[in-house]
Structure formats: structure tokens, C-alpha cells
Write a protein that binds this DNA or RNA. Structure first.
Length: 230
DNA sequence: GCGACAG
DNA sequence: ATCTTGTCGC
């Protein structure tokens, strides 16, 4: 397990450093490959769940080309409240544990977080990918600080999200007439590859399949369901 | 100064 | 993250 910052000052310094680094570009391979999703949830019916000391349930799911999956679950206590821009402080260590527990290095990892759409241009999707050395795509419901118009209503319609003059993410419609999601090119990803791989994993559902499975599994884990199928 | 702000 | 009211409005 590598080191995660444990104070706001440490994290901000690391984020500023991360933002200055450049990485080799990932391209979606033509051959079948293993993808993964990772997700953490906190208490249901608990006011303000996800605060310091609260129990969190994390799950990583690897999705194989034949459709089979491998699941790893791990729980732990939040060491920080949620602070916008500092999500890594609360969720970074547990998410990393979950992915490492798979015992597999996926080709691409989906994370519920931003990347360059961030006060210091280094959100958790970028940070986690960097620490694991696994290419990442961030998926969120909303931008953090970036701005842009909503896309058209057809699957594949997109619109750039910018911080100043820099395009940092995209609104992307993954299903006709359904709410768009925000696609954040993460560690080693550029915009085209991020959108390509998201569309590849959203043939049937709005959320990319590996992340959808990880969410489902984490909520079952929280509910006490042993089910290892998903 | 205050609120908003990925989850 | 999670729950919840209602279709308003800076």
C-alpha cells in the first residue's frame, strides 16, 4: 500500500505536483481486455453519512472479456469528512485497497470522481490511477468546477467542459433521452479515448458496466448480502 | 462574509 | 454519499 496524504495541506501539495506531470497516452486496445470499476458507499438512513468515523463499504469489480467478473470487497472507517476538492483524503486509501485486492491489473479503471476538473487540476480519478499505475476514467453526475453547455439528447452527443480555456472533461449522453454524465479523462487518458471507452461500456446502461457492477456490489455488501456473483 | 462545490 | 418535496425562485 502506498502513502496517501493525511492532511489537507499534504494533499493539496500532492495535487499541485500531480497536475504538473505528463504521462504516456493510453489507447483502447483492439484485443479483448480486462476493465474494472471501484466504488465506496456509506450508511443508508444515516444523516450526513460519509463523515469522519463513518463505516464505508468499498468494492472493486473486474470485468473480463467473456462477461465474467471478479469481486473484491473491503470496509473501513472514513478518516475525513467529505470536502469538495479533497475527496482523496476520505476515499483514496479504501478505494486503492479495493482495487489492489482484486489481484489483477486491469487495462482501464472507472472511478466515481473527477480528474482535471478540480481546483488544482488533480482530482481523485487522476490521483488513484497514478498511484495504481492503471489508466482511469472518472465518471460523475456533475462537474466540480468546470463549465459547459448540455449535450444533445442522442447517445454519443457530447459537449466540452472547460476550466478557463482548458477542456478538462465532457458532458456525454450515453443513452437517448437519459441524463448525461460527466466523463473525466483520468490517468493517461485523453478525451477521445475516454469517450470511446465509456461508449463501449454503455451499450445497455447509462453508467459504464464495470462501475455499475461495483456500485451494485458495494450496496449489497452494505446490506449484508454475501453474494459473490456481483 | 456567505454559499456553492466530485462523493 | 443519502433522503426527500414537489415542479417554484435569487
Amino acid at each position: 500500500m502506498s502513502f496517501w496524504p493525511t492532511t489537507t495541506d499534504e494533499l493539496i501539495l500532492e495535487q499541485k505536483r500531480l497536475a504538473t506531470l505528463s504521462f504516456s497516452r493510453w489507447e483502447k486496445p483492439p484485443e479483448p481486455f480486462i476493465s474494472a470499476g471501484v466504488f465506496v458507499c456509506y450508511g443508508r438512513n444515516v444523516a450526513g453519512a460519509g463523515k469522519k468515523g463513518d463505516l464505508g463499504w468499498a468494492t472493486a469489480v473486474a470485468l473480463f472479456p467473456d462477461g465474467s467478473v471478479k469481486v473484491f470487497r473491503v470496509s473501513g472507517r472514513a478518516t475525513f469528512d467529505y470536502i469538495p476538492g479533497l475527496l482523496a483524503l476520505r476515499d483514496g486509501p479504501l478505494l486503492e485497497k479495493a482495487v489492489l485486492g482484486l489481484g489483477i491489473r486491469p487495462e482501464i479503471l472507472f472511478v466515481n470522481a473527477t480528474s482535471r476538473d478540480h481546483p488544482y487540476r488533480a482530482g481523485l480519478a487522476l490521483h488513484l490511477g497514478y498511484k495504481l499505475d492503471v489508466p482511469t476514467v472518472g465518471i460523475t453526475r456533475n462537474p466540480l468546477i468546470a463549465e459547459g453547455s448540455l449535450p444533445g439528447i442522442k447517445r454519443g452527443d457530447k459537449f466540452e467542459l472547460r476550466v478557463g480555456n482548458e477542456t478538462v472533461a465532457f458532458w456525454l449522453r450515453t443513452q437517448d433521452n437519459k441524463a448525461p454524465l460527466v466523463v473525466h479523462p483520468g490517468y493517461r487518458l485523453d478525451g477521445d479515448s475516454a469517450i470511446e471507452v465509456v461508449l463501449f461500456y454503455t451499450e445497455k446502461y447509462r453508467t459504464p458496466e464495470p462501475l455499475r457492477l461495483a456500485r451494485k456490489s458495494a450496496r449489497l455488501y452494505r446490506a449484508g448480502v454475501e453474494d459473490q456473483a456481483v
